[in-house]
Design a protein around this nucleic acid. Structure first.
Length: 379
RNA sequence: GGGUAGGUGACGGAGUGGUCAAACGUACCAGACUGUAAAUCUGGCGGUCUUAGACCUACGGAGGUUCGAACCCUCCCCUGCCCA
């Protein structure tokens, strides 16, 4: 049980690993789709022509806490049963929600007090509550409750945030150890905005507490790619080589490639589903906005090199029509396509690393994908 | 044939002497979205000029009144409804 390194790339810091949980193994580098999307089910291994699928998905304890409530899921047999997903699940604690719902919340040493965005109730979540909630859900991998600061953030504020996060992390770990058997995992989260010394200190003290994996939080909030990559590079030197490294919330395909080359193993991001819902598709040559008029009578699939259910069955013109008529099937089919794109992308990354060809794979992808206008490609 | 209501930009529909190139909605054309309060949000949408802005063409048609008309008057054309 837990993480094992399988291969390390010779030219970069990329690596292939496997993480074993009570609900099976997932291979890294991995992308975790968000589990509330029905389309995820269709991405289970074996349901697609080429036998690749999501091996782990992510859920959010904060949102499930508010609706439908932890007890409903717990009493109903746990999150896996609730979602009909028998493979690994990672749950986020809600640290990011504290950050993104900031106008409604009050942060104290004890925890976070906030108004439910759903019905306006005042609710309270402590680090211990967050752990108990995730244990109640039956999550395989749980995240500590952390404080994620926005960008830009002053040094002192960032320092206070890592200190609070560290205190909360110790409490989380203590609560976890007293409640959980050995079939669950708890990951710590490194904060520190874009300050190298804070990031380093946050990482070192988090490692000292001792977690089953380490996440990098608080990035992709507006700091820009160079600063982000600098933080990732720095942390991957500090974090133990044998532990899984999770880059929270990112990102675009090329960002994932960069992060993998710096040594990241695990990703999650709302982009494939959110963009899918809003009409943008990832393809092998770039992003495509399906609502645009150029696809009005385009009978080709979204991506001619894709084997997903959407691309095997439907045309751009039909998907555009679904979006333009407000039919929910459009967002569903496009989300499914985008998730498939990410899952296949990660699969290809793992293959490339194993073959010792990751650097070439990365270069080829960037040449093909970056700055490529879709309209040009049509000519 | 008589009466009546009306003809506004792609469509629906405000406006009823100057602040109107014309509200609002839809459609259309783009853009955004990164640990999901997001099937969402933003911008554009008569024409020409590179923008501020300027000019041109516009509210069924033709005349007229007025410093000024989508808005008032006259005639004509068209449409809905009612009565014969």
């Amino acid at each position: 049980m837990g993480f094992k390194l399988v291969t390390k790339d010779e030219n970069t810091n990329a690596r292939v690993g496997r993480f074993e949980t009570a609900h099976g193994v997932f291979n890294t580098p991995a992308f975790m789709p968000v589990g509330t999307q029905a389309a995820v089910k269709a991405l289970m291994p074996g349901t697609l022509k080429d036998e690749i699928g999501a091996e782990i998905i992510l859920s959010n304890a904060y949102h499930l806490f508010i609706r439908p409530g932890i007890d409903i899921i717990k009493n109903g047999g746990g999150l896996h049963k609730f979602m009909s997903w028998d493979k690994p699940v990672l749950t986020d604690s809600g640290g990011y929600q504290i950050f993104s719902l900031a106008s409604f919340q009050k942060l104290t040493e004890d925890g976070i007090s906030f108004l439910s965005h759903f019905d306006g109730r005042r609710l309270f979540l402590s680090p211990e509550d967050a752990v108990r909630a995730q244990i109640g859900l039956g999550s395989d991998i749980m995240m500590v409750l952390d404080q994620c600061v926005s960008y830009p953030c002053g040094y002192d504020q960032a320092r206070e945030a890592i200190e609070l996060t560290l205190r909360w992390s110790r409490r989380s770990k203590k609560e976890f150890d007293s409640l959980s058997g050995n079939s669950h995992f708890l990951f710590g989260i490194v904060q520190g905005s874009i300050y190298p010394e804070l990031r380093k200190r946050s990482a070192e003290e988090t490692i000292e507490i001792g977690f089953d994996g380490y996440a990098i939080g608080g990035l992709n909030v507006g700091e820009g790619n160079p600063a982000r990559d600098e933080m990732i590079a720095l942390l991957n030197k500090v974090l133990p080589e044998g532990a899984i490294r999770y880059f929270m919330g990112g990102g675009e395909p090329w960002d994932i490639l960069e992060a993998v080359s710096l040594g990241i193993d695990l990703f999650d991001c709302t982009l494939p589903t959110r963009l899918g819902r809003n009409g943008t598709a990832f393809t092998s040559i770039g992003k495509l906005t399906i609502r645009n008029g150029e696809f009005k009578s385009d009978i080709r699939p979204v991506d001619e090199n894709c084997n997903c259910y959407t691309c095997l069955n439907f045309s751009r013109a039909y998907l555009r029509h679904l979006f333009n008529t407000g039919e929910i099937l459009g967002p569903t089919l496009l989300s499914l396509h985008n998730l498939y794109f990410y899952i296949r992308f990660m699969h290809n990354i793992r293959s490339a690393i194993k073959k010792g060809k990751f650097r070439e794979f990365k270069k080829e992808f960037e040449n093909k994908y970056n700055e490529r206008s879709f309209a040009e490609e049509l000519q």
